[in-house]
Amino acid sequence: MSEPRPVKFRGGGFAPTSIKWIGPVVFIVLIGLLELGTQTGIIAPLTLPKPSDVLATFGELWRSGQLWLHLVPSLTRLLMGAALGVTTGIAIGIAIGLFSHIRAGLVPLVAAIFPIPKIALLPLFVIWFGIDEGSKYALIALGTFTPTVVATYGAVDNVDRSLIRMGQSFGLSWRSIVWKIVLPGAMPGILSGLRISLAIGIILLVAAEMLGAEHGIGAYILQAGSLYDLERLFAGVVILSLLGVTVSAVIGHLERRILRWRS
C-alpha cells in the first residue's frame, strides 16, 4: 500500500474573475511600444503617427476650443438620432412582443431593414430630410432603431410568463401588466440591446457626417483622412473610442441602478 497523500486538486480555471489592472497595463505597454517604434524610426511616419504627437494634437484641440466645436454637434446628432431611434424601437419592439398581428406584420420588415448598410441610404436621406441635421438624425435613428426593436421584442418574449399569469390571476388591468410586469421584466434585455444600438450609433456618426457636415468628430476624422493627417485621424478615433467607453459606462451605471434586483 502506498503512502497516504492529499487528493489532487483539479477544479481550477473556468472561473473568470475581474483583474482590474491588466486592462490599463495592456494599453500602456502597447502605446509605449508604438512610441518607441515611431521615435526610433522602425515604424515609418507614413504607417503610424507618434502617440505623443497624437496626444499633442488632442491637447491642441482642447486648448483651441476646437474639441467642443466638433464634439457638441456630434453629441447632439448622436443624442437626437439615438433618442429617436431607441424610443421608437422600444415602442415598436414592445408592440411586436405583445400583439401577434403586429408581430406577423413587422418582424419580416425589421429583418429586411436590419442588414441594409444604412450608409447606403444616406443620399436618399439627404433628399428626404435635407442635407443639414435632418438626414444625420435619420441615419442614426434608423441605425439604432432596428437593433433596439430586435432586442426589445426578444426581451419581451423572455419575460417570465408565470409572472404575467400571476398578474392576470390577480385581475390586474392590461395596462398594469404591461407597465408593471412586462416592461420591467424586459428591461435587462432592452438595456443590453441599448449597448449595441448606441455603439452602432457612434459608428454611424462618421457616416452621417460624410455629407455636408462642417463640424463634428466624424467630419474631423474624414477631413484628417483626406488630408492624410494621421495625428488628427488618430486623435479623432481616440475621441470616438472614449465616447464609446463613456456610453458603455453610463449604461453600466444605469444597469446597476435599475437592475439592482437581479441576483
Binding site: S162, R165, M166, F170, S176, P184
Partner: peptide, 26 residues
C-alpha cells in the same frame, strides 16, 4: 379566486411590500 403558485411568482424588482401593493394598486 386567488392563486398561490409553486414558483412563488414574485416580481424580482419589487420589494416584499411592493409585491403586495402590486395587487392592490388597480
Amino acid at each position: 379566486l386567488t392563486y398561490v403558485f409553486q414558483d412563488f411568482a414574485l416580481l424580482p424588482w419589487r420589494s416584499v411590500e411592493g409585491n403586495i401593493s402590486l395587487v392592490l394598486e388597480d
